[in-house]
Nucleic acid binder design. Structure first.
Length: 570
RNA sequence: GCGCCUGUAGCUCAGUUGGAUAGAGCACCUGCCUUCUAAGUAGGUGGCCGCCCGUUCGAAUCGGGCCAGGCGCACCA
C-alpha cells in the first residue's frame, strides 16, 4: 500500500530527526498521507510539518526541510518508489512516484489477478458483520435490500483486507409478530378449507400468506385445523425463511452464518442474560414486568440519561430486547475484535439501549459498531410508493430484481454512503439504464474483453478474456513504452486499489467502490479513445495489453466486492 | 417535545476523516466514428458548500445556535 509505505518512511525520518537532535518533540503526531487534489502537488503528500510546527514553535517550512533531509527514498527495495520530493505551499511535503515502480506494480496486478487489492491490514483480527436480518414475517422488500448490499460489500471488503470475517443473518423467529403471523396464516388456511376465518388484530394481509396457506392445504389437506398455533407460525416461518434465503442468494448475497432467536431460548442464553443483569443490579420490577435500568455508577457511558426498558413482560415472556441482549452477549463470547451491526435507521432507538445493556454485562462497548443506513424511499415516476409489511403493501426485492436487475440495484445502493437518504425511482432506474453508471463501468470491462478477443484473432496468441491469460507474454512486455500521460495516470490509480480497499475497511463505508470503479472506467475510456492497443508495433501492443489487462483485473476486482459480475460483451 | 440522519451546480450525488484553486454524472450548448464496441470522448455554461457565530496557520469537513426535510420515540421487532 502506497500510503502506508510512505507513512513508514516519513515516520522513520522523523524518528531520525529526533535522534539527531534536529527535532525536539516528545510524541509523534498522527501521520496522514493524502493524495493531493491538484496534480502539480505530486502523487502523495503530507501536512505533518504543520502539526509539528505547532509543537515546536518553528515554521512548517523549516520542519519540512528537516524531515526531507532525514528521508531515505532508497527504501532498500530493488525498485525506486519516490522519484521526486519537494516542499511547497509553505510546508507541505509533496512526493512524486517513480514510473518504474508503477510499471513493476502493473506486472504484479497481472500476475496476482483476482488477488490484487488484498492486504494484511486486518490480519489476526476477527470481525463479524450482521446484516439484512429481516424478520421472517414476509418477503424481503426493496427497502431491506440496502442493508443487504451494504453489509455484503462491507463484508467482502473486510475479507479482502485480511480480517477473519463472518457475515451473519439473525432470524427473529419467535415473539409477538411471529404469533400474529401464525394466526394470520391460520385465517387464510381456514378460508381455503371453507371456514370463516378468525379476525386477526393487526394481522398480516399479504398475498404471500395465501400462497403459503395453499401449500399447507396441498400437503395436509384440511387436517391441520385442530393444530396448535405454534404449528402455523412454524410452518409460515419455515416457508418465508426459505423464500428470503432464495431471494438473497439470487441477489448475490451470501452468508457465512445464520443464527435463530429461538436457539438463544433453547440453549438458555436468554434466561442467562436476564439473570446476569438481575444479579448485577440493573433490573427492577414495576407493574409486574422486569425492567432494565441503567445505573450511572456501573457501565453507563458518559453523558447518558437513565433509561428504562422492559426485559420480561408482565405475562412472563421476554421481549425482543432481552433476546437481543442475549444475542450480543453470544457475539461477544465468540471473541470478535469488532462486532458490526447494520440496521435500518428506523431501529435507531434501539441502539443506545443495546449499547447500555452490553456494557452493563461487562463487555467493551467500543467493540460494538452499529451502522444505521437511511431508509430507501421508493418511487415510480416521481410519485412515492408507500410500503408496509403488515398490510401487505410493499415492493419485494424479487419484483425489483426482475424489473431493473440486481446489478443496477446493487450499484445504485452502493453509490451513496449509507448515512445518506436514498430515493430509488423504479422508472428512472430503468430509463436511465442506458446512461447509467452501471453500464458505464461494465462497458469499460466489456471493451477490454473485446480487445483481447481481437488480440487472439490477430495471431498474437494472447489468450481470450477473461481466463487463461498467457501472462508470460505480458510479463516480458517492455513497459517502458507506456509513457503517455494517460497511461501513467492509469497506472497510478491502479496502484491505489489496495489503499482504497483498506480505507473502506477502516471507515466501514463500501460506497467508495462505485466511485473508484467509475474513475478507473473513465480513465480507460479516455485512453481507449486516443490510443490503439493492437497495432503493427508488437512491443507497444504487448505493453498496452498488459496495461489493459491490469485495468480489467482491477475493475473485475471492484465488481466482485460489489457483488456484480463483469460483462464480457454488451 | 426529545433523539438520530441529511442539507454542496437546475437534478442525483462525491469530496481522501482539518489541507493547497470545491469535483463527477444527468440536463443544456459546440466538436470527434473507414480503425480493438460512439452504451464512448474533448470543450463550454453552471457554486453566499442551508444560515449565523466560534475553534486555528487553514473549515464543505470540528463545536454551538437557528432554518428546512426524513425517520424514530410500545409490556412491536
Amino acid at each position: 500500500m502506497l500510503k502506508k509505505k510512505l507513512s513508514r518512511m516519513i515516520q522513520s525520518a522523523v524518528g531520525k530527526a529526533i535522534a539527531s537532535g534536529s527535532l525536539k518533540i516528545d510524541k509523534l503526531p498522527s501521520l496522514t498521507i493524502e493524495v493531493p487534489k491538484n496534480r502539480e502537488h505530486g502523487d502523495l503528500c503530507s501536512s505533518v510539518s504543520f502539526n509539528l510546527a505547532k509543537q515546536t514553535g518553528r515554521q512548517p517550512e523549516e520542519i519540512a526541510g528537516v524531515i526531507l533531509d532525514c528521508l531515505e527514498t532508497g527504501d532498500g527495495g530493488s525498485v525506486k518508489f519516490i522519484k521526486k520530493k519537494e516542499i511547497a505551499g509553505r510546508g507541505f511535503l509533496n512526493f512524486f512516484i517513480d514510473e518504474s515502480y508503477l510499471r513493476q506494480n502493473l506486472l504484479e496486478i497481472v500476475s496476482e489477478g483476482g488477488g490484487y487489492g488484498s492486504s494484511d491490514s486486518g490480519k489476526g483480527k476477527k470481525i463479524q458483520v450482521e446484516f439484512a436480518s429481516v424478520g421472517p414475517t414476509g418477503p424481503i422488500h426493496i427497502g431491506h435490500a440496502r442493508g443487504a448490499v451494504v453489509g455484503d460489500a462491507l463484508g467482502n471488503i473486510l475479507k479482502k483486507s485480511g480480517y477473519e470475517t463472518v457475515k451473519e443473518y439473525y432470524v427473529n423467529d419467535v415473539g409477538t409478530q411471529i404469533d400474529i403471523l401464525g394466526k394470520s396464516l391460520k385465517a387464510r388456511y381456514c378460508e381455503l378449507c371453507g371456514l370463516a376465518p378468525a379476525i386477526v388484530e393487526n394481522g398480516y394481509e399479504g398475498e404471500y400468506l395465501k400462497d403459503i396457506a395453499g401449500r399447507l392445504k396441498e400437503k395436509h389437506g384440511s387436517g391441520c385445523l385442530e393444530k396448535p398455533p405454534d404449528f402455523f407460525s412454524g410452518f409460515a416461518v419455515e416457508q418465508i425463511l426459505e423464500c428470503i434465503k432464495k431471494d438473497l442468494s439470487d441477489f448475490g448475497v451470501v452468508f457465512d452464518s445464520w443464527v435463530t432467536e429461538s436457539s438463544l431460548y433453547s440453549t438458555g442464553k436468554v434466561a442467562k442474560a436476564i439473570d446476569t443483569l438481575k444479579e448485577k443490579g440493573f433490573t427492577s420490577l414495576k407493574d409486574g414486568a422486569l425492567w432494565f435500568n441503567l445505573r450511572q455508577d456501573k457501565g453507563a457511558e458518559e453523558g447518558q440519561e437513565d433509561r428504562e426498558n422492559v426485559l420480561v413482560r408482565s405475562t412472563g415472556t421476554p421481549t425482543y430486547f432481552a433476546s437481543d441482549i442475549a444475542y450480543h452477549s453470544d457475539k461477544y463470547n465468540r471473541n470478535f475484535d469488532a462486532i458490526i451491526d447494520i440496521w435500518g435507521q428506523d431501529h435507531h432507538g434501539h441502539v443506545q439501549r443495546v449499547r447500555n445493556a452490553v456494557s452493563a454485562l461487562g463487555y467493551d462497548p467500543s467493540k460494538l459498531e452499529i451502522i444505521l443506513y437511511q431508509l430507501v424511499s421508493l418511487s415510480r415516476k416521481g410519485s412515492p410508493v408507500r410500503m408496509s409489511t403488515r398490510r401487505g403493501e410493499f415492493i419485494t426485492l424479487r419484483e425489483v430484481m426482475e424489473e431493473v436487475g440486481s446489478e443496477t440495484i446493487r450499484f445504485f445502493f452502493l453509490m451513496r454512503k449509507s448515512s445518506s437518504h436514498l430515493n430509488f425511482d423504479l422508472e428512472l432506474a430503468k430509463e436511465q439504464s442506458m446512461e447509467s453508471p452501471v453500464y458505464y463501468v461494465q462497458y469499460a470491462h466489456a471493451r477490454i474483453c473485446s480487445i483481447f478477443n481481437e488480440a487472439s484473432n490477430k495471431e498474437l496468441q494472447i489468450a481470450k478474456c477473461p481466463k487463461g491469460i498467457h501472462s508470460d507474454k505480458l510479463q516480458n512486455a517492455n513497459l517502458e513504452l507506456l509513457k503517455d500521460d494517460i497511461e501513467i495516470q492509469i497506472m497510478k490509480r491502479l496502484a491505489f486499489f489496495p489503499d482504497e480497499i483498506a480505507e473502506m475497511a477502516v471507515s466501514r463505508e463500501p460506497h467508495g467502490l462505485t466511485v473508484y470503479a467509475q474513475e478507473i472506467a473513465g480513465l480507460f475510456h479516455r485512453f481507449y479513445t486516443d490510443h490503439r492497443v493492437i497495432s503493427d508495433d508488437r512491443d507497444l501492443t504487448l505493453a498496452r495489453l498488459t496495461l489493459v489487462k491490469a485495468i480489467q483485473t482491477v475493475l473485475a476486482g471492484s465488481f466482485g466486492l460489489m457483488g456484480i459480475s463483469p460483462k464480457e460483451k454488451m
